[in-house]
Design a protein around this nucleic acid. Structure first.
Lengths: 175, 175
DNA sequence: CTCTGACATGTCAGTTTTGACATGAAAGCT
DNA sequence: AGCTTTCATGTCAAAACTGACATGTCAGAG
C-alpha cells in the first residue's frame, strides 16, 4: 500500500524512481528496497491495480501508473481496513531493555539516541517547512509534521531520561 | 533480543508467560506472537543463551532462564551493535497517504486516530505512574514514559491536523 | 575511446513474521 | 459429571523482508 500510494502521488513512475522516492519520503515510516519493489510491482500489475508501459523507453525502463481499481483499493484500505497499530522501533525497544544496564552504560546509549533524534527532528522540520510553502500541493506535509513531532518527543524523552538517570546515580553514590 | 531481554527482566518464565508479558509491555515497540516465541526459545537454548527446566511442572510448562552467556549477548547487542533505525509505523504511513484523500475522508481518519492515541496515552500514563511508585525496581518505567510521550505526540498531531484540515476546507468553500 | 557513475531491472537464498490449525491439562462453575 | 475458560505448547504454509549477487544501458569526463 505504501508503494501503491507513492505511485499514485507521483502520478506514474518507474520502479527505479519509486525506489529513490521511497527513501527520502516514506522511508521514515516504512522501508522497502528495490528487491522488494520490483516483484511487488509485477504482482500489482497481475492484480490489475497498476498498468505498465514497457515501450520505447531508454535503458529498458518501465513506466507504471495506477489504475482506477488501484486507486479504489488504496482508498478502501485507508478508510475501511482497521489499521495495524503495531509499531516496530528498535530504538524504543532498546529503551525498554536499557533498564538491564548499569546507569553508566545506559547514559552512553541515551546520549547517542538523543543526538540522533535531535538531528532527525531538525531535518524533518526543514522538510515540513519546505512542503508547507508549496501552495496548491495538498496536505502532504502532515506526514513530515508527524515525523517531526515523534522525533522531538523521543529527543525530549532521551534528555529527560538522562537527567533522571544522573539524579539517581548521585543519590546512590553520595561521595 | 526483545524476548531475551524480557526473559532477563522477568528473571525466568515460561513461554506462555513471556507471550502474555510481551503484549502489555514491549508490545508497543515490537510484537511477537506465541508462534514466534516458542521456536525462538528453542533456538536460544540451542545457542546456549537460555536454560530450560522441563521437570515437574503443572500442565507440561517449561521454565526458561537466561544464562550468563545470554546476559552477555544482550549487553553486547545493546552497547556494541549499531541500532537499526528503520521504523515501521502504519499510522504514520497512513498519514502520508492521507494526502490522497478528500478533506472529509481525511477528517474521519484523523478523528479515529486522535481518539485511539488519547486512550493509549492515558493508559500509558497510568502504567508509568504505577511503575514509578515501586522504589527499588530499576528504571523500567522509562519505557512507559517513552510510550506515553510518543502517544501524546501522535494525539496532538491528529488534533492539529484536524484543525488544519478544517481551516482549509472553510477557505476553499466559503458559502 | 575508455572509464566511471548514475540509471535501470531483476533473482535468489535465507530469515522473519503472520494467522490458522492442532492438542491437551488443570481450574472453576453449575 | 459436564462445560467453559485459562493455561500451556506446539506446527505449518504463506507472506514479507533482507542482503547479496547479477546484468545491462547511457551520459559525461578525461
Amino acid at each position: 500500500m505504501a508503494l501503491l500510494g507513492l505511485l499514485i502521488s507521483e502520478g506514474g513512475a518507474s520502479g527505479y524512481t519509486l525506489a529513490k522516492s521511497f527513501s527520502g519520503s516514506i522511508d521514515h515510516v516504512w522501508k522497502a528496497g528495490h528487491s522488494q519493489i520490483y516483484p511487488e510491482l509485477v504482482k500489482m500489475v497481475e492484480a490489475g491495480l497498476v498498468d505498465v508501459d514497457e515501450e520505447h523507453r531508454p535503458r529498458g525502463a518501465k513506466h507504471y501508473t495506477a489504475t482506477e481499481e488501484g486507486r479504489a483499493a488504496l482508498e478502501r484500505w485507508l478508510l475501511e481496513v482497521e489499521p495495524n497499530r503495531t509499531v516496530r522501533n528498535e530504538i524504543a525497544l532498546r529503551s525498554f531493555l536499557m533498564s538491564l544496564l548499569t546507569p553508566e552504560q545506559a547514559l552512553r546509549l541515551l546520549e547517542r539516541e538523543r543526538e540522533h533524534y535531535r538531528r532527525r527532528a531538525e531535518r524533518l522540520a526543514e522538510l515540513r517547512n519546505a512542503l508547507a510553502e508549496e501552495p496548491g500541493r495538498g496536505f502532504g506535509y502532515f506526514s513530515a509534521e508527524l515525523g517531526f513531532r515523534i522525533s522531538t518527543a523521543i529527543h525530549e524523552w532521551a534528555e529527560w531520561a538522562r537527567e533522571e538517570t544522573e539524579k539517581r546515580e548521585e543519590e546512590n553514590s553520595p561521595d
